[in-house]
Design a protein around this nucleic acid. Structure first.
Length: 807
RNA sequence: GCGGGCGUGGCGGAAUGGCAGACGCGCCAGACUUAGGAUCUGGUGCCGAAAGGCGUAAGAGUUCAAGUCUCUUCGUCCGCACCA
């Protein structure tokens, strides 16, 4: 009797409800079992709904999580909502709906879409960063940071997006573009709250050595942190009694210094303005620089510009030589000390500047042609007094450091490219920063017992035109009493950046309903670290860095049991449009997962997302390719028509035994390595073989369904149930393979002459190298191939090939 | 400029230094069909009638054997970027 038709639209909702009703995937409270904590980046519930990129990451971790459950682990695979943020707020402003309502709608929509794809999330542990019971603990961690001196306020130049009316962190304004609206970011002097992430730079670097991340992710974080070692050296300013401090990675080139350069914003220029003779011109230059965006300043100034500061000069502390000081915007206030010693012979930027302004160039390292360009390689030191004769920079730097430290003119030091984290946003839809400004006591923390500091419900959430958050207009929120002195005080009205809530959400999942702590120590000890975290490359220098920072801080104050949050990180490649371009509305190449699921079903959709190519590569979408996966599932379904009678022994048939064991091994190992495409290909090969044979035993069918179930769970549950194979497939143990059944008795090997394949030969798999070399050259096939040539050498690779070197 | 990738059929892509192109898409043929945009079977890198030859961006090298290792060149993608 032919089997009933395969209709995904009927069986998929049925099994989704089945799992839901049973809370099939809720992590167990039983801590005696081995645990597995699998994590995906919780989505930002935007109004557009899921795109095809979300399911790629989710399906991958869903496969791993489902396999781990079948392997006997207590699995935590949670989901939540990173729901604070500007896009929601902007949408709310545009449509005049409260962001809380928008958020709820979007979350509901996302949850429904995720359930339609059949992910095995533990929905009982959902978190939402906008829930006061959640952000209470975000604020709590912030206060801990504050208590430990990790929060400070500073007035400096900040990245500011005029369109979003918001201050951005360095990480949020990469390339001089606003991360939210992609408009130009400008530099403004502003009072902002910083988190002292630079204090953790070394720990964040060292921690990378202890975790299993792909090399490119590690490298990107290392580059972003940008540690450099060098020296700080003080150059006295002539006739002032003060010095200007510089940072250099090559203190051993001090004898080649012929001028100095200060950043336009350098404060010493203001201090000595009265004695600077050309202050008017200097000021004009500074004004010009201030007008440029960060982008223009770093990209477009191929030609060096600048100006000599007349009336102010410096003294080389080692030689006593007087050197002129220039200002130029190729020196940044934000790195090092905002001033440099210029060594034009050995730094290309200094070289260009010296050429333009006719400054002396003194060679101190031999090896290049400083007439043509700066020489930055190694070589013998010359014109450098006690350094002369050194030939490698390690030694010469060590020697000069010794000297300058002895003379008290400088010291060894390190610098980081990474800057402290600008943490406040002048917008409504974020966590209120729990700080109070008291005219008497200064900045005072909101007492822990008053948390959560709730975001007031307001109707007018337009950003202020005065650079202040909408909260500044709510008198009842702003005005408060100082917790210290009881006097009238005012609340901080800025909110936290989107990255706050996501910096610790994986901790909350361990114990999401706890109202005494962000999570109990017992749960944290059991579940941490996250065993496997998959996400996108775009978060490597932001969320992934920020959350490692918060976690490491919490570890240092004894709140979490592990120094690193994530034991293993992987990253999926982007799904591109079928034209090979990034999916975007404007290109019209966006694929809507709902439509694909409606056509081929969630199981085939999931499978295609895993099958389309290597998991970590960017891959163009092909709907035809997806239909191919549906065809494969149809074939799996129709195997029911080929089933051997139920009374046949529940094992693998002899002629399929090797293929079955090989498939179990390959699928298991490939899932583990996230090589989903080849795991699926192996199952397709197996099914092709079964079709050629024309029949399948129940034992073979069961094994296939078990292997396939993490990828395409609904169809497997349905067949499993229809065939009466017992309890639901998600409760079944993962199949095992047996080493002794992985090879056949005889294998075909290639026969090569001088490395080129000329023929084939069947040999027993047990044949050793000695046996092969002794017997195979005498076989008829080999004799025919070599003719009258002489065998010079004979190489045998067991089970693979025989290579005869002949002449 | 610095750092990290990648380059294989018409397409997406497979290949612990050991038979290049698994698997899928597309295409061709056959079967079954009233029908086929369903299904099953077979074929499908290029040249050649065949024998055979040529093939993994280009060039060199190491090796019995190279898509894989080394060097050079070219192309391309991503991240950072006047970082002193």
């Amino acid at each position: 009797m032919p089997v009933k038709p395969y209709v995904p639209a009927e069986i998929e909702p049925k099994w989704q409800k089945f799992w839901d009703d049973r809370q099939a995937f809720a992590a167990s409270k039983d801590h005696t079992k081995p645990k597995f904590y699998g994590l995906i980046e919780f989505p930002y519930p935007s109004g557009h709904g899921l795109h095809v990129g979300h399911p790629r990451s989710n399906t991958a971790m869903d496969i791993i999580s489902r396999m781990r459950r079948m392997q006997g682990f207590n699995v935590l695979f949670p989901i939540g909502w990173d729901a604070f943020g500007l896009p929601t707020e902007n949408y709310a402003i545009k449509n005049n709906i409260h962001p809380a309502i928008v958020t709820k709608q979007n979350v509901d929509h996302f949850r429904e879409q995720l359930k339609k794809i059949g992910f095995s999330f533990d929905y009982s542990r959902e978190v939402d960063t906008t829930d006061p019971n959640y952000y209470k603990w975000t604020q709590w961690i912030f206060l801990k940071l504050f208590d430990h001196g990790m929060v400070f306020r500073d007035k400096t130049l900040v990245n500011y997006c005029p369109s979003c009316k918001v201050v951005l962190s360095n990480e949020d304004s990469q390339g001089g573009k606003c991360d939210i609206c992609h408009g130009d970011v400008i530099q403004l002097p502003k009072d902002v709250w910083y988190l002292r992430i630079t204090a953790y730079a070394d720990k964040l670097l060292q921690g990378l050595e202890t975790v299993d991340y792909p090399e490119n992710i590690k490298q990107q974080q290392i580059n972003w942190i940008g540690k450099s070692t060098g020296a700080f050296v003080k150059f006295p300013l002539e006739d002032t009694g003060e010095s200007v401090e510089i940072y250099t990675t090559r203190p051993d080139t001090l004898f080649g210094v012929t001028f100095m350069v200060m950043a336009p914003e350098h404060p010493l220029i203001d201090k000595y303005a009265p004695q600077i003779k050309n202050m008017e011109a200097i000021q004009a230059y500074r004004d010009e620089c201030a007008k440029k965006t960060e982008f223009e300043r770093t990209q477009l100034t191929k030609e060096k510009t600048g100006l000599k500061i007349e009336g102010l000069s410096a003294v080389n502390p080692l030689t006593g030589k007087v050197v002129p000081i220039f200002i130029s915007d190729y020196v940044m206030m934000g790195y090092g000390t905002g001033a440099i010693m210029a060594v034009p012979a050995h730094d290309q930027r200094d070289w260009e500047f010296a050429h333009k302004f006719g400054i002396d160039i003194i060679e101190v390292i031999k090896g290049g042609d400083i007439e043509k360009e700066a020489y930055t390689g190694d070589g013998e030191m010359i014109n450098s007094d006690f350094l002369n004769g050194y030939t490698n920079k390690k030694d010469s730097i060590a020697r000069v450091l010794e000297e300058i430290e002895k003379k008290g003119i400088g010291k060894a030091g390190v610098q980081y490219k990474m800057k402290d984290w600008a943490f406040n946003r002048q917008r409504y839809w974020g966590e209120p920063i729990p700080l109070i400004h008291c005219p008497k006591c200064g900045v005072v923390a909101v007492p822990y017992e008053e948390l959560p500091l709730r975001l007031p419900e307001i109707d007018d959430f337009q950003p202020g035109t005065d650079g202040k958050s909408p909260l500044a207009r709510i008198d009842s929120f702003v005005n408060c009493t100082c917790p210290k002195c009881g006097g009238a005080a005012q609340r901080e009205t800025d909110t936290m950046p989107q990255w706050a809530g996501s910096s610790w959400y994986f901790l909350r999942y361990c114990d999401p309903h706890n109202d005494q702590a962000f999570a109990s120590q017992e749960e944290l000890k059991y579940w941490l670290p996250v065993d496997w975290y998959n996400g996108g490359m775009e978060h490597v220098t932001r969320h992934l860095l920020y959350s490692r920072f918060w976690h490491r801080f919490l570890y240092d104050i004894g709140e979490v049991p592990t120094p690193e949050p994530y034991a293993k990180r992987t990253a999926q490649g982007m799904i591109l449009g079928s034209d090979g371009e990034k999916m975007s509305k404007s290109r019209g190449n966006v694929v809507n997962p709902d439509e694909i699921i409606a056509e081929i079903g969630a199981d085939a959709f999931r499978m295609y997302e895993m099958f389309m190519g290597a998991f970590d590569q960017a891959i163009p979408w092909s709907t035809n390719g997806a239909r191919g996966c549906r065809k494969f599932l149809d074939r799996v379904w129709r195997l029911q028509d080929m089933l051997a009678p139920a009374d046949c022994p529940d094992v693998f048939s002899e002629d399929m035994r090797v293929s079955m064991h090989q498939t179990i091994k390959k699928v298991t190992e490939d899932f583990e390595k996230m090589k989903f495409n080849t795991a699926i290909a192996q199952m397709m090969t197996l099914v092709n073989e079964i079709y050629q044979k024309g029949s399948i035993t129940p034992g073979e069918y069961k094994a296939l369904l078990l292997l396939l179930s993490p990828v395409s769970p609904h169809i497997c549950e349905e067949i499993w149930q229809d065939q009466g194979y017992g309890d639901p497939i998600y409760t079944q143990p993962w199949p095992k393979y047996d080493e002794k059944y992985l090879v056949r008795d005889e294998v075909e090997i290639a026969v090569q002459l001088n490395g080129k394949v000329k023929g084939k030969l069947m040999v027993p798999v047990t044949m050793t190298r000695e046996e092969a070399q002794a017997t195979l050259p005498d076989s008829d096939e080999v004799k025919r191939l070599i003719g009258d040539k002489q065998i010079v050498k004979c190489i045998y690779v067991p089970g693979r090939l025989l290579n005869l070197v002949v002449k």
